[in-house]
Design a protein around this nucleic acid. Structure first.
Lengths: 230, 230
DNA sequence: GGCCAATACTGTGCATGCAATTTCGTGAAT
DNA sequence: ATTCACGAAATTGCATGCACAGTATTGGCC
């Protein structure tokens, strides 16, 4: 078919990860090796290796002799993921304030400005994409791939649970305002302020999420951990 | 024979990891699947699964179709690991200052005091062990297993390269003094000071390491990345 | 004599098969 | 009716074997 440069194991790991992240495989789902092997047209061997890799990243849970399931995240664990992500994001902002090159700063400012347009037009899809790009800039701005990778990994991991964050009216403008504080601090080279502003921003996102969970809890029948309909 | 509760794959992963961390398997060593299988008396299958797990943690490097090697860490990458670890440790100290329970604070103070004794007696082995325990207290003090696990993992990963850190004369006392600043800030609930003090402490450790590397570089024949003889 | 190409070989990627354990279904006893 | 025990099916853990990519070696050519 195509480039077979990467092994089946790697392809499987990434495809299964995608299926989990986009909600096709819901948390708690059993990951039957035979089923996955049949589904992707391979034998169980690469499936097993892919599962072990995913288990190490925390995306799935591997229970010896009892099979694998998509990671169950309790409300408490999710809050800890959010807190950890917030701290890492704040650290990235701090280092970005200290380490970004002039070019990086210019691009950051430009992206931020363009997001203002999206807010004005209430373009949620564009804003969501730009938001991801903005945060990615802070990761890259650390000039520290280790930290960047850890933070991005954590963001991916909480991704399935923050899908609807920009749905609430006015949240786009609020998010943009918070970003403004972070961007100004970073561009101004104020590491402490950048840290504080980002921490504030992420904690607000967390609060918004918790409200979402709370409302979902009040409406039984819709699983709070399924962010996307099937 | 022995408790077979954990699978061979897990046992292998942990044994190979130990071998890497204690220097038996030097960075750059080829990890031949047949050899490892024979060495541990299993087939290649669990070896492969263990290798994939280790690759995800960053301990080894898995090059498709070209075999696995113990992770090569260049001087630059090592510095990034140190910086990332420092940031995470500082974050742990910050959260500890905010979240530690009275009991945890008492134990932290007690451990710190007992380390003063070890410094006075110049007991390097005891101090090294206590140092690990002290840092572990900060991880636990965050009350955030996600962050704690990430930080501990990073510390493990740089472990092989900081083995001789307490060798230099006077470093024990210096380390203890730095710890004092962190401990006081945490016990006093001053999150910002705790963060700053820990960051300072870790950056000094990093400097000490870089000096070590520099001196090792000047003495060719002794590999700077082999901390322990085979 | 050095460089490049063809070949043999080593080692990884993956499929398949078997054994052991877990789990599910059935039945009987309390 | 509920619970426990037993047995069957399903599923994981691991071993083995084969095919292909990568590597080393040898021979030929410039």
């Amino acid at each position: 078919m195509s480039d077979d440069r990467q092994t089946r194991t790697e392809k499987l790991a990434s495809e299964i990860a995608d299926a989990i992240l986009d909600g096709t495989l819901a948390p708690g789902s059993r990951l039957d090796e035979h089923m996955l092997a049949a589904r992707y047209g391979t034998s169980r061997t690469p499936v097993r290796e892919a599962l072990r890799q995913l288990a190490t990243t925390g995306l799935i849970e591997l229970r010896p002799r009892r099979g694998a399931i998509v990671a169950q995240v309790t409300s408490d664990e999710l809050e800890m993921l959010f807190v950890a992500m917030g701290e890492l994001e704040a650290t990235c902002a701090r280092l970005s304030a200290m380490s970004m090159t002039p070019i990086e700063r210019r691009r950051l400012g430009a992206l931020y400005d363009s997001m203002g347009e999206m807010v004005a037009q209430d373009d949620v899809p564009a804003y969501t994409a730009a938001n991801t790009a903005l945060h990615a800039m802070f990761y890259a701005g650390t000039h520290n791939p280790v930290l960047a990778e850890m933070t991005a990994g954590l963001r991916r991991r909480v991704g399935p649970f923050r899908r609807a964050q920009f749905r609430a009216p006015g949240r786009l403008a609020l998010s943009h305002a918070e970003h403004g504080a972070v961007v100004r601090a970073v561009l101004g080279g104020d590491a402490t302020a950048a840290h504080a502003a980002m921490l504030h921003h992420v904690s607000l996102v967390e609060d918004a999420f918790e409200q979402l969970v709370a409302t979902a809890m009040e409406a039984p029948g819709s699983s709070p951990h399924r962010a996307k309909a099937g």
